[in-house]
């Protein structure tokens, strides 16, 4: 394994072959906003928040799945990138019904943190206000589709770590929804082991423990021994 050198935000940094821009940036204390990324899970590059500019590339590249290369010149923050990121978060908010004030994850929510971080003070786009349901059939947990951002962390943790693959995504575009098994109520699922990992990795209040009231969600990620606590953001 050899060491590659590159510049991120004008700083000379080094990383191992096969490492991603996000890894190297974080190792060097350079912050890149992320949402679908969670250390310990595979990366899918779905949320597009970590897009960066790489000199010589016309396209923007997602830092979480872009391998570093010798001599790469990466820009993490530019006016365009910040505007795009803010717009992405705005689209996430307007696509479903995110009402922080009555949300179990209020003040403990990565979507909320991102809105604050990126200075999203209002929506320019109209709200879609879909009629999304709540599935509370599981004995201990529930899912509120109104608050889901389709980051698929739950799908990955269930598949890659628990090995159950209870979760998946059905439908396309604004119709896309998380499903358990083949689209049956969560409480009827016979693959679900009720381990609760999906609830712990959920960045918003979409997956919640029953009995928790507003702003009472606590994500115990450090207790998942195979997952490193979500770094880069203090709770």
């Amino acid at each position: 394994m050899s060491v590659l050198t590159l510049t991120i935000e004008g700083r000379d940094v080094a990383g191992q072959t096969g490492g991603t821009i996000l890894q190297v940036a974080r190792e060097n204390g350079i912050a890149i906003p992320t949402l679908c990324h969670l250390q310990g899970l595979s990366d899918v590059g779905a949320c597009r928040l970590c897009v960066v500019e790489v000199e010589g590339q016309r396209k923007l590249l997602p830092a979480c799945v872009t391998a570093i290369d010798e001599g790469m010149k990466v820009t993490v923050n530019s006016e365009r990138l910040t505007a795009y990121r803010r717009r992405i978060v705005e689209l996430l908010f307007t696509e479903r019904n995110h009402v922080c004030s009555v949300c179990v994850a209020d003040r403990n929510c990565e979507l909320q943190d991102l809105a604050v971080e990126l200075g999203l003070t209002h929506f320019d786009l109209p709200l879609l206000s879909p009629q999304a349901s709540v599935d509370a059939t599981h004995e201990r947990f529930g899912i509120d589709h109104n608050r889901c951002v389709l980051c698929t962390r739950c799908v990955r943790v269930c598949d890659e770590i628990e090995g159950a693959h209870t979760w998946d995504v059905m439908g396309r575009g604004t119709e896309a929804r998380l499903i358990t098994d083949m689209g049956i109520p969560w409480g009827d699922s016979n693959t679900c082991t009720s381990c609760g990992k999906c609830v712990q990795v959920c960045p918003t209040g979409a997956l919640f423990e029953k009995g928790r009231s507003v702003a009472e969600a606590r994500r115990r990620r450090p207790y998942l021994p195979y997952l490193v606590a979500h770094e880069g953001r203090t709770r």
Partner: peptide, 14 residues
């Protein structure tokens, strides 16, 4: 309608 009962106190406070 359709909300979790645990949300009700805060929802109704609104």
């Amino acid at each position: 309608q359709g909300r979790m009962v645990h949300e009700m106190p805060s929802l109704m406070a609104r």
